[in-house]
Amino acid sequence: MSVLVDHFDVFASGFWLTFQLCLLSAVGALILGTLGAVMRISPVPPLRWVGTAYVTVFRNCPLTIVFFFAAFGLPSLGSNADFLKIPGLSSIFSRLGIDLPYFRFAIIALSVYTGAFVCEAIRSGINAVSPGQAEAARAIGLTFTQNLRFVVLPQAWKAAIVPLGSVIIAMIKNSALAGFFGLVGDLSNGAQNLTSALGEPIIPVFIGVSIGFLIMTVPLGLLLDRIERRRAVAR
């Protein structure tokens, strides 16, 4: 058990890095997912196709492959994901601005992959709004955008919040894969380093890493259960 104390810094900094990764990826996924959802309900067919293709591809592809293409495909496209070196953000999230691009690649992989699920969650939310609502809105003369903005989306958000939460929880767990694709020092990479390079016993290391992830996932899960139960009662 002494590993947890001796190497507390590894766990703490690993947790902090994983947390940063999750936070930024969640934002990215929400943006991409919303864009995708808007595309999928837009009147322009090619945009709908793009939206559908995006969701189909990334929902059915193992995350490992997505990570691979972020870490090795993007470089062959000549990109180091430098567009993510956002000046203000880089000062808070130090890994965002450094030369080594694997933190940015991990954000891209997680955002793009999770975005597909976010898109589905939002779409299921939109579907949950009864058609009468949109019809009524149209009857009083609202345009497509107004209809979405004032009537459909606010209600859809409410219905989508629980599935969205589940998607984000899944994303937090998926972030563990980043440590296997070039991100040095996150929870899973730290754990691997402790056990395989330094030969620390496996079980305490595992417990440390588990705590790191459970701190993020369990409270979120309990919160969602609560929201769900309250809504169930209301219904």
């Binding site: 929880i169 563990a176 894969l177 588990s210 459970l214």
Partner: peptide
Amino acid sequence: VEIFRGLPVVITIFFVASALPE
């Protein structure tokens, strides 16, 4: 339920493979 639902599958697999033999 809470533990295994909240843990990354990668970590679970890694752990099972290295801890069971121990």
